[in-house]
Amino acid sequence: MFIINYLKEVFGAVKSLATGLRRTMYYFTHHKEIITQQYPDNRETLNFPERFKGEVVMPHDENNEHRCTGCTACELACPNGSLKVITQFNVTAEGKKKKAIDKLVYHLELCTMCNLCIVACPSDAIKMAQTFEHSVYDRSELTKILNKPGSKIMEGVE
């Protein structure tokens, strides 16, 4: 029946609209749920959601050692070329040549924080940090070298 369908449609529409209105009224009357951060005022006590991605960093331990093998998986994974791995060959004690990184160059100005490099890394050498105050006066300062000077690869990481 046309008229019954018509009325059903009208009532269905009113009901769904009322559902939406009830939800927004709930938010309107529950001010405690506000998640806005008062940023410059609470700079010390800022807390981020776990998944917030600020920039790519390479964690080093207390012996100035990192886990990067220089496999260039992150460089290949990066969609806009913000990572550049510069490798060198170290001669080990047995006289073998071993591939290691010289520099891991990171262009923060190109990075979109897509997290693909972190996923691609086989040895968990890089991760996303939650820093976000990246403003600098010169663009060249945004080009960073992730491994610290004098650092070397951790024992046992292949």
Binding site: T24, Y27, F28, T36
Partner: peptide, 10 residues
């Protein structure tokens, strides 16, 4: 203000 409170903002 109304829009902010409805969208859980300040």
């Amino acid at each position: 203000k109304v829009s902010a409170w409805i969208q859980i903002r300040l």
